[in-house]
Design a protein around this nucleic acid. Structure first.
Lengths: 239, 239
DNA sequence: TTGATTAAGATGTATATACAAGTTTAGGAG
DNA sequence: CTCCTAAACTTGTATATACATCTTAATCAA
C-alpha cells in the first residue's frame, strides 16, 4: 500500500457511493467515526472528505454531517481531464480512432502563440478522427512539443497519446485550460467528418500542462453539433 | 475582519497576481516565509495556497516552491458559478436584460423531473433575454421553486435573482451541475432572439443547489452560436 | 402542552510538531 | 576541474489539540 492514506480513504468512500452502499440523501458516518474506523486522525479523514466534496460526491453540512449527492445524472464527467480513450470506454457501441495525418512540423505564428514556443521548436502534428457507430463525428488536431515527447509514432497515436506520455515517459499531466466555442466548418472538417449537413462545429481548445507547469500540448477537438455534450460539476467560487 | 484568516490570505495573494506584483513564472515566497509574514502557521498558509492552486493561480512544485501561472488568457471564468450580472460587468459595451415572461406555474412532468418535485410545488417561471450591443443573443429560462423563494417580483428579475437570494434571503448557493449541448432553434428562440439565420443554439442546462444540498433552481440558458464562449480551468482528477 | 435552556455531537478554523520526499547549493574528494 | 555527497530548503503527509460555530435532541420550567 504505497498510496496515500487520505487518497485511499477517498477511493474507498467514493466506491461505496458508486456501488450504492451509501445512498444519495443519506449521511455518511461522522468524521470522528470514520477516524476510528480507519484508525487515523480526523484531519486525514477531512482531507478525504474535502476531495469527495470537490468532486461532487458529498455536501458537507456544518453541525449535521456529510450528505451523499446524486451522481447518477452526470454520466461522464468531461470536466476534469478525461482523455478520449477513457471517455470511449464508457460509451456503448463501436468506437474507432483513425490517424489521418501524422508528422513533425515547424510551428507557424498561430501555433507559436498557442504553444508559447518559437519557430524552431519542432512540433508533432497529429490529426485523428473519432467515429461512433461508423460515423466520424469528432476531429482531433493535436500539437505536441517535441522537446517533451521526443519519440512519437503513428502506432502510439492509434492507441492513446496520454497513456504513452504518463506510463511510458513517466510525465504527469497536471492541469488544462479549456475553451469551448462554435465555429463554421472548415474544408478540413468537411473532408474528414460526416457532417450530415451541419454548417458549424463545436470546438474545444485545450491547453495541457505538465506538473512542472510547462505547456506541452495544444489540442483542438472539433465536434459535430449534435454529438457534442459537456457535463460539469462546479462549486461556487471560494471568495 | 470577520473573514477567515486563510481566505483572507488567499484574497491578498490572488490580488497580487491579478495586479502583476507576482508575475507568471515567478516563485512566490515559501510557505514558511509566508507563515512568518502573516504571523500564522504553515498549515493556514497551505490552505490558502490550496485554494490558489484549485483556482488556477499557482502550481505547486514539490521541493521547489509555488510558481505563478498565467491567468491573463482566461478572460472570464464561466467555470465556477458566475451569474449573468457578474459576467456582464466584465463585458464592454451596453448590456441589457429584459423580462419577457414572469409568473407562477404548476410544473409539468418534464419540469417535475428536472426539479425533482411534484405537480403541486408552485414554481416561478422567468423568461429573460440578454442583449449585447442591442442584439438579443441569450435567452434565459429560469424555474425556481416557490418553497425556497416565496416572494419574487419582476423588478428583482430585471436586476439579479442571485443577489436577491443571497443578500436579501440569506440563502447560500453552493454548487451546480451543468450540461452543455446544442439544440435546434425552437419557435420561442426565433421569437425572442436575433438569430441572424442561425438554426441552432447552444443550451446550457443548470441545476443549482443551496448549501443544504437542496435543488432549488433549473435554468436553461440558450445562446446564439456565435456569441457562446465557455472557459474552464481543470485540474487532473485526483484519483 | 409549550417554550426556552442546556448538553451533546457534528463540522470549521487555527496552531503545533514530526517526518517523508524532492530540489538546489555548497563543499569536499579525487 | 569534475564528480559526488551532504546539508539546507522546499512542499507533502500524518497526527494531535483546542476552541468556535452550528444542529439536534433532551431537559426543565411555566
Amino acid at each position: 500500500m504505497k498510496i496515500n492514506k487520505y487518497k485511499h480513504i477517498y477511493e474507498e468512500l467514493a466506491a461505496k457511493m458508486k456501488d450504492g452502499i451509501f445512498q444519495p440523501g443519506e449521511l455518511i458516518p461522522s468524521e470522528n467515526e470514520l477516524a476510528q474506523q480507519y484508525e487515523t486522525s480526523r484531519e486525514t479523514i477531512r482531507k478525504a472528505l474535502t476531495l469527495l466534496s470537490q468532486n461532487g460526491y458529498i455536501q458537507k453540512l456544518r453541525g449535521k454531517g456529510s450528505v451523499v449527492l446524486d451522481t447518477s445524472r452526470a454520466i461522464f464527467p468531461v470536466s476534469g481531464l478525461v482523455s478520449f480513450k477513457e471517455l470511449a470506454e464508457q460509451m456503448k457501441g463501436p468506437v474507432t480512432t483513425r490517424v489521418e495525418e501524422f508528422g513533425l512540423i515547424k510551428p507557424e505564428p498561430f501555433l507559436q502563440h498557442q504553444l508559447q514556443c518559437n519557430a524552431k521548436d519542432d512540433t508533432w502534428k497529429v490529426t485523428r478522427t473519432r467515429a461512433f457507430d461508423d460515423e466520424r463525428v469528432i476531429l482531433d488536431k493535436d500539437f505536441l512539443l517535441k522537446k517533451f515527447i521526443p519519440d512519437l509514432t503513428e502506432e502510439i497515436c492509434k492507441d492513446s497519446i496520454y497513456s504513452y506520455i504518463e506510463q511510458e515517459l513517466g510525465l504527469t499531466i497536471s492541469f488544462a485550460k479549456k475553451e469551448i466555442v462554435v465555429e463554421s466548418c472548415t474544408e478540413e472538417d468537411k473532408q474528414y467528418l460526416d457532417l450530415n449537413g451541419f454548417l458549424h462545429v463545436v470546438v474545444v481548445k485545450n491547453y495541457v500542462y505538465l506538473d512542472d507547469a510547462s505547456l506541452f500540448q495544444y489540442t483542438e477537438s472539433r465536434h459535430r453539433l449534435d454529438k457534442f455534450r459537456f457535463v460539469d460539476f462546479a462549486r461556487r467560487q471560494t471568495t
